[in-house]
Amino acid sequence: MTAPLLSVRQVEKTFGALRALGPVELDLRPGERLGLIGPNGSGKTTLINCIAGLLVPTAGAIVYAGEDVTRRPAHKRARMGIARSFQIPRPFTGMTVLENLFVPLDYLGRGAGDARARAEGVLRSMRLDGRRDAPVESLSQLELRKLELARALVTEPRLLIADEAMAGLADSEIDEILSLLLDLNRTGVAVIMIEHIMHAVMRFSERVICLETGRIIAEGTPQSIVEDPHVQRVYFGEQQNRP
């Protein structure tokens, strides 16, 4: 068995008196496709913020590529190959699409010398090249989602965390993003997908983890998760009530 790319070891996060997460234990293989589901407020975003470095866990450790990164700031983890997209797209306003991609290229220094070619290549592969010089303020929802992913991918990460990258998209658009993520995974990039769109998670993931109130309540193949009575009660029950 290969060494895990990422190990989350007994990680806990509390905000004041509120325990938002944990303890959570989780391993991820290089190149694995992991789905992360759970009701709103179940700690999914807290967990990935701990992994990406935007939050420091209250307890526990995060080991990435053999190094303890628990207290390392997010920009250093980005340098180590952890990339993420945000649930609500956070484009760098006041810049064009291409300039948005220059930011990670400037600071992470991948593909130095041909930064522009690299950025344009990623835009082409995401079919965003037509909007290369458009100000981000003029992008559609789908384009913003793609930009979010493109900005993460341009740095050639080893782990991509996609936080609801398909929320608010039409079915055909979901298919488009899914196939992009699958193509990416084929190049060896591990992907953690947080998603409420069940058919997308189930199609994409090799393994699915369900969180509830900050703890892992189920883990297994997509099929076993769907059939898990506990998951059905806390999550799919809620799903049906969603407007």
Partner: peptide, 23 residues
């Protein structure tokens, strides 16, 4: 690159950090 980093910070600090900008 400095200006792009500054503008990224102005737009969103978490996103800037995630793109490797030492905010």
């Amino acid at each position: 690159w400095l200006g792009r980093g500054f503008r990224a910070i102005r737009a969103s600090e978490p996103a800037a950090e995630s793109c490797g900008v030492p905010t």
